[in-house]
Design a protein around this nucleic acid. Sequence first.
DNA 1: GTCTATACGTCGATAGAC
DNA 2: GTCTATCGACGTATAGAC
Lengths: 188, 188
Amino acid sequence: MREHTDTRDRIQEIALKLFTEQGYEATSLREIAEELGVTKAALYYHFKTKEDIVASLAEDQQAAMERLIEWAREQPRTREVRHEFLRRYADNLYSGRNHAFLRFMERNQTALRTHPKVEKMRRLVAALMEVFGEEGDTTAQRLRRSMAIFSLHAGLFLLNEEKIDDAERKALALELARELMDAGSGPG
Amino acid sequence: MREHTDTRDRIQEIALKLFTEQGYEATSLREIAEELGVTKAALYYHFKTKEDIVASLAEDQQAAMERLIEWAREQPRTREVRHEFLRRYADNLYSGRNHAFLRFMERNQTALRTHPKVEKMRRLVAALMEVFGEEGDTTAQRLRRSMAIFSLHAGLFLLNEEKIDDAERKALALELARELMDAGSGPG
DNA sequence: GTCTATACGTCGATAGAC
DNA sequence: GTCTATCGACGTATAGAC
């Protein structure tokens, strides 16, 4: 599909790290190149533009989220399915670069507001929040379902001072997400 | 205390709007000046630097939050006090520029990470989340108290598609915040 | 694939006239 | 208080050698 060099992967890794730590606009291609040990021009061999680096990062995560939404739509509307849905999303989040990418998105919402792939990701997150929504739901229920997804995102960084490992963090965030999801759904 | 011209106030208003909509770094002083109908140089008469505009916006909100934390520390640790605390914070948030400023902070976390007044504000938000913490609290409880504050911040923009007014939005966010705060506190 | 060199724009900020 | 004019630094991006 695409040529897959080590350098390309390292650019993604370093870019995501610096974008998250310092901000998207505040991070120049010069900085990325420096940390990588090459010049700016080398980056342009692997990526057409700065935005293109973000696009490449969004692509993997997008596929995973689309698959999860597709899965959820085919399932019966039961409490067990909703819990399994949250578990799958948490597994996805807490593995690989996925959580790092979502944190980057959340911390740089405005800077990335016109980025097509980021807009797509925002719509997918919104879809996650609504996939178990039904006709007669109240606004109070919608709020709780949204906050269920949100608590998974927030879990990792809200508890960063605690002396616990990621597995426990994930379990705690997931437990709260289930409570909120149950409170935001009808019976059954 | 300080000379208080109309222009100074309009600069704050327009800057906060553009910073929130477009991002802090993505908004140039030229844009602010243009929307105001003056030149960049005029801005520099009212504010020493770009960061100084942010600092001025933080100051009002900081005072209100410090007062609220001070108040909470003097109260007995009861359920009624915690609910009153949330109500006061929500009143503060949903009035004036306070909520707009916090949204701006959340959406531009990384770009503002080294800004002294913004760091101070982050510490104050953390203090709000911990002000009802006690010695033997579990991590699960801490997470719920944090999410209680967070749900007040999130309430306004998570429900932006709903056809309800701000008063109802506030009431719904407050109700969820109470649930989370109760779940994150000991009995009494 | 990576380099040097550079084009070209915009940024924040300042000097000095009015 | 606001202007014109300008500075130096840095940004993204490209051309062309190796």
